[in-house]
């Protein structure tokens, strides 16, 4: 199971650090596939049948719908991310430090203090903490939305590891909220891109008009 969690974290890292936004969303899909796989696996290992429903919901929302919405919001813009506040090498180093330190610390804490929790606990909390990092360091709107997705995924794993028998209605409602939030994020990003494109075209027209007059 540990390998799955490490893969989830690794693809979260790739999602955050990849400059190309399309590649970043593809990494997010892989991250979500492993997340869904972990939900099914935890359900199977611990004989919690309701996890299959959650896994199916994750597959639908996190693997298909969210990336689809994110791909749509890439329309009318360049696919390279806007330069972040922190340089890439430093950002990669920081990401590795955050992911490895928190994951290992939480693993130790869990085994010592909270052994009754499901094994996905440390992965969930690490994802939540790691998601806050691109939120501060990235300038690109899509990357900020992606960081929100990572935070949400972290809380989702954290929730199912800490309260595995929580009413499924609550889980479904939380996923619905998440989907609505992402929809609105994508709507705003799409509109901002549309307006920016119009402005750039207008500028270009004005420049061409000036040059032809001269």
């Amino acid at each position: 199971m540990n390998l799955i969690y490490i893969l989830i974290l690794f693809f979260a890292f790739l999602t955050v650090e990849t400059k190309n936004l399309k590649a970043s969303i593809i990494s997010l899909i892989l991250h979500s596939i492993f997340l869904t796989f972990s939900v099914f696996s935890v359900g199977y290992i611990n004989s919690i049948s309701s996890f299959y429903l959650i896994g199916f919901l994750d597959l639908l929302v996190r693997v298909f719908l969210i990336p689809l919405i994110l791909f749509r919001s890439l329309k009318n813009r360049a696919t390279t991310e806007t330069k972040p506040y922190i340089s890439y090498p430093l950002s990669i180093a920081l990401s590795i430090v955050i992911l490895s330190v928190f994951y290992h610390l939480l693993e130790v804490y869990k085994s010592l203090s909270l052994p009754q929790l499901l094994e996905s606990f440390s992965c969930g909390v690490t994802l939540f903490i790691y998601g806050l990092y691109p939120l501060i360091s990235k300038k690109d709107l899509i990357k900020i939305v992606i960081s929100f997705v990572i935070i949400e995924n972290g809380i989702h794993i954290f929730l199912i590891s800490i309260l595995p028998y929580l009413s499924k209605f609550i889980e479904i409602s939380l996923t619905f909220n998440y989907l609505v939030a992402i929809f609105f994020f994508a709507y705003i990003v799409f509109k901002i891109n549309e307006i920016s494109l119009k402005e750039e075209l207008q500028k270009l027209k004005e420049t061409v008009y000036k040059e032809t007059n001269e």
Partner: peptide, 28 residues
């Protein structure tokens, strides 16, 4: 529907959504 209002709503959505997520962690 102008750039400024979209940026303001994006900021609102990011801050309020992530802020409220902390209260969800509190509840959990």
């Amino acid at each position: 529907h102008d750039k400024e209002s979209f940026y303001a709503s994006f900021k609102y959505l990011v801050f309020v959504n992530i802020g409220i997520l902390f209260s969800l962690i509190g509840i959990i």
